[in-house]
Design a protein around this nucleic acid. Structure first.
Length: 521
RNA sequence: GUGGCUAUGGUGUAACGGUAACACAGUAGGUUGUGGUCCUGCAAUCGAGGGUUCAACUCCCUCUAGCCACCCCA
């Protein structure tokens, strides 16, 4: 790291009058004695531009763009874990991996996600490129996957086509924990299938991924109908609310005209109270939607997947039809709550379920929880059916489809919060310490032999002192340390040190690998 | 995008209107070829910029970032 040889510019100049500064000197913290600075460049160098530029801080250092995040090595184990599970289960359930570009035509998302959604109106990173094309960083991937499906004529393959993806998405939102501007999602899409089994299978898959990750979650599910039946419900809802308009919060007054369904999940207490008596969408579903929904629930029951019918669940993207669902993380207090109710609920069909429709798992009791529990109370992921999307994007025929997406950062947040045990990478078996240039070279070679012999070896070839190397070996907790120096090279031997007892044995250098193996057994 | 809170070495914390203390981690050395104890040195000018003041990390303003609640969503 570059050090700053000259401290501060402005303030020091001020003080120049009182305390003349000596070039290359600085007053030590304790005070009176000028201390010679290490690495003080000559004056000529200091004024040189190259020098100044090398002093990152002085010229203004760089930092992360807002809402972006570095994933450091020590965090990778969480990512690896999630990626592994997704890949494994994806393949078991017959989904093929698909990669689509991060950069897409802006219009694709405008059309798919919906002109009026926040994602499109204010959260997209979109711009005109040098050629004048309107492009954007993808805010989600479903649209891209459907685009790819159409573009590659996959409707001519056996249906459904099932895909999974994993990668970065971009939304210019205000950052918070579990909410970044560049975030990663994995998702599953099944295109070309209208059967309710598919909806159920996706939910099961989502649930199983969480289960494999040993996370406690709850499935929230609802049906928002189709283009046939939803308008009727919308109208009923608006009619119901019109009279009570004055009691709604400002946001909801707004939503009343634009997107009344969203009033259902408003967090404002007054609004919620108002919604208690509101018409329920299940009562408005057309025969097709209703039958579809019931079948989805039956499938979930069959597989003993616990779920929570949540009549207030609506999703923000325009393309959803029929089934919608989310998975929420569960924390201790909520867990008990859920266990108490889920059994009964599963027995009940849609029509008998009105009474339960309102119990969002973390609503009433959750209030205290929400305040002291945590940001990751956000949904881990969600999805649903989007039967109309392919046609919107230019498919020639009706192409029913369903899918879901999950926020990986949010998942990792929950993994950490729920203290899911994760085995890190394997610890080293031995440490290889060297002394002197020659030994260094030989060690490099010996390291290769050890690796071939399947012995995980730690080293620090950039260190010269034996002391610091042993210190490191100790910290790593290895059982043995191999030591090689001038003397050993001359004798063609090597020292094997038992780190626990401190006992050292000198063995033949050429037998080093097998000697180590013998001891590690 | 709106409102609130916060910002001190790598990390976690402290103090004070008179230029920073502690713990851990890191590094160098005491022990020139030997660790897990001990001791010592090094490492921050207090997020950035401006203002008030003889004097600002400390007070004020602006900006930036993070967090929280909204909006929205993964």
């Amino acid at each position: 790291m570059a050090r700053k040889p000259i401290k501060k510019t402005k303030k020091t100049t001020k003080k120049k009058a009182a305390v003349p500064q000596l070039q290359g000197f600085r007053f030590g913290s304790k005070g009176r004695e000028p201390v010679r600075l290490k690495k003080t460049p000559s004056r000529a160098k200091k004024t040189g531009k190259a020098f100044q530029e090398s002093q990152g801080r002085k010229m203004g250092s760089f930092s992360l763009l807002r809402g972006m995040k570095d994933v450091l090595p020590e965090e990778q184990k969480y990512w690896d874990l999630v990626r592994d599970k997704v890949e494994k289960l994806g393949s078991i359930y017959g989904f093929g991996k698909i990669e689509t570009p991060i950069l897409e035509e802006t219009a694709l998302f405008r059309r798919a996600v919906g002109e009026d959604t926040d994602i499109i109106t204010k959260e997209m990173f979109s711009f005109k490129d040098q050629g004048g094309d309107e492009v954007c960083l993808r805010p989600e991937a479903t649209a891209s996957v459907v685009r790819a499906y159409i573009e590659h004529g996959m409707l001519n393959r056996s249906q459904p086509q099932k895909f999974w993806y994993l990668g970065p998405m971009f939304r210019r939102d205000r950052p918070q924990a579990g909410r970044q501007r560049q975030f990663n999602q994995f998702g599953f899409e099944a295109i070309g299938a209208g059967d309710s089994v598919i909806d159920a299978q996706l939910i099961i898959l989502f649930y199983k991924i969480c289960e494999e990750l040993k996370m406690d979650v709850t499935v929230q599910i609802n049906s928002i109908g189709c283009l046939e039946c939803r308008p009727a419900y919308k109208k009923a809802l608006v009619d119901y609310l019109k009279v009570k308009k004055n009691f709604l919060c400002d946001d909801c007054k707004n939503r009343l005209g634009k997107n009344p369904l969203r009033i259902l999940d408003c967090k404002n207490r007054e609004c919620q109270k108002m919604m208690e008596e509101a018409p329920q969408i299940v009562d408005f579903l057309c025969e097709d939607c209703k039958g579809h929904f019931i079948k989805v629930l039956e499938c979930l029951d069959e597989c003993a997947i616990p779920y929570n019918l949540n009549s207030k669940l609506v999703r923000g993207l325009d393309y959803y039809t029929k089934t919608v669902f989310e998975i929420w993380p569960l924390f201790d207090e909520q867990k008990e709550d859920q266990l108490g109710t889920q059994g009964e609920e599963n027995e009940k069909g849609v029509s008998t379920n009105e009474t339960n429709m309102t119990n969002k798992t973390n609503n009433k009791d959750g209030e205290s929880v929400a305040s002291k529990v945590d940001p990751s109370n956000l949904a881990l992921g969600g999805g649903g059916r989007y039967d109309g999307l392919a046609e919107i994007l230019g498919a020639r025929e009706e192409t029913p489809a369903a899918g879901f997406a999950v926020g990986i950062e949010r998942m990792i947040l929950v993994l950490k919060k729920q203290e899911v045990k994760i085995s890190g990478s394997k610890k080293a078996d031995i440490f290889l310490a060297q002394l002197g240039d020659q030994a260094k070279k030989i060690s490099l070679k010996l390291f290769e032999d050890l690796r071939k012999g399947n012995i995980k070896t730690a080293e620090n070839f950039s260190k010269d002192g034996l002391k610091s190397q042993l210190e490191q070996a100790d910290k790593l907790g290895v059982k043995y340390t191999l030591i090689i120096g001038q003397k050993e090279i001359l004798d063609r031997t090597i020292i094997i040190r038992d780190m626990e007892s401190g006992v050292q044995e000198v063995v033949d250098f050429d037998k080093a690998v097998e000697e180590v193996k013998k001891r590690l057994k």
